[in-house]
Design a protein around this nucleic acid. Structure first.
Lengths: 244, 244
DNA sequence: TGCGCGGAAAATGTCAGACAATTAAATGTA
DNA sequence: TACATTTAATTGTCTGACATTTTCCGCGCA
């Protein structure tokens, strides 16, 4: 007398879904303890390994944490910003790398979103954000910096800009867009001249943010978007010529 | 002679991480088959259930899919936009519900991002997008619509707006911001007057998008943001008064 | 009475072995 | 050749056991 034999097999997925729904719909609150594996097994009429597979699925999504020992068990976990960042970045990166997303598409998305942050960042940036931006600009001017390091510094710069908006939800959403672009950016070879131009634009952006001039920040971000797009188009073209 | 007894216990997490890294770093490509569970068990020197728990973790993140039968097994999965949407929405919703995010913060993030899409949507919207927007506006004008349905329709309207930008990466990033707001929006009681105002603004936005007038779209989105913020503040205030 | 220590208990983590279910390829047959 | 049957490989599930970790409680001792 099985409840529903509709979806053929994969009991652990069904059980995971049932528990996940309970958490999402708020029927279980943070730090509440789930029944023990044995109890869940009895409740769902499956064996303990099956329940365990279900719990591991939830653990992979940071929905629960487990704790050994007496009065241990599985607990609904408070999803921290950091973990959410991490998951979002992983997903975004894979999405881009596995779906042959055009450089233009990713670039457009990233700068559109970043420009949305700029006015807020101009209002609210703290000395900390400005210091980070300046430090990264300085690093980007160092000769002998590898292309990878240059890109990594670029990401840090832009994250500081985004964080400057002082809205953690915005930072979270943007993290995916900014970080996921890095693998695509890494394919670009930055000549000395292009680095100079980028540093120039970064400086202009930092200046505008410091001066709380939203309009100037937007203008220069737009220029940077256009320049990055051109660089990327160039690199992609070379790349495709090589493989043809 | 264990390889690394550094992190005590949770072999399945370590194994999952090892495989996940291999996929993220591109050492395994889409549709490539992983070794069978028995082979992985031998390779990592653990039992099959432990390997299975690791694989379930990866399956929960849509990194692999499994297939039964001869020549079945676990395969690296192409992460589809839809699945990525789903994961992002789940994570975003939980992040907001579990971290006592202020209505203002979420609202600000959402409209900042949406306004970033508007100019692109004005350029590229198709008749389909316009039709969806008009249909939802019509629904929102129906009397007797529950607050929940009104909110759901609101989400559909805004997703059509975002999709109108014709950039799937942008749609993906925005999905989290727009959908995750719904539980917060659901706490608002929409009076007849507030619905009228929202419908009026939605109509103005749809008109602007249809006329490809980016500036008008932006202006009205800004107004909608301000109005939503005011409604939300009101609702939150009442809510906190009730519980005090 | 107060304190520390050790065992019991409860829970997750891991293992071993078995069987069921499913699927594609190989094989046999008309 | 075309179709049915067998077979082998692989995941899905179950049972039972043991290892490990952690908390709690009671006991002995000062």
């Amino acid at each position: 007398m099985k409840t529903e034999p509709k979806s053929p097999s994969d009991l652990s997925a069904q059980i995971a879904k049932a528990i996940r729904d309970a958490i999402i719909e708020g029927r279980m609150i943070v730090d509440e303890r789930l029944p023990s594996e044995a109890e869940l097994a009895a409740e769902f009429n499956v064996s303990r390994p099956t329940v365990r597979e279900a719990l591991k699925r939830l653990a992979a999504q940071s929905l629960i944490r487990t704790q050994r020992g007496a009065f241990g068990g599985a607990f609904v976990k408070r999803l921290s910003y950091e973990e959410a960042y991490g998951q979002h970045i992983t997903t975004s990166t894979l999405l881009l790398s596995m779906n042959a997303v055009r450089f233009e598409t990713a670039c457009e998305a990233r700068y559109a979103l970043e420009r949305a942050c700029a006015p807020l960042a101009a209002q609210r940036r703290t000395p900390d954000h400005l210091a980070t931006m300046r430090a990264e600009i300085h690093r980007q001017g160092q000769p002998g910096l590898s292309d990878e390091s240059f890109c990594a510094s670029d990401v840090t710069f832009h994250r500081a800009l985004v964080d400057g908006a002082g809205n953690p939800v915005l930072s979270y959403q943007l993290a995916g867009a900014v970080e996921a672009m890095q693998p695509l950016m890494n394919m670009i070879t930055f000549t000395e001249r292009s680095r100079e131009e980028i540093v120039r634009l970064h400086t202009a952006i930092a200046d505008a943010i410091e001066a709380q001039d939203a309009k100037a920040a937007d203008t220069n971000l737009e220029r940077l978007a256009a320049y990055t797009l051109a660089l990327g188009r160039d690199a992609m073209e070379k790349h495709s010529r090589k493989s043809t």
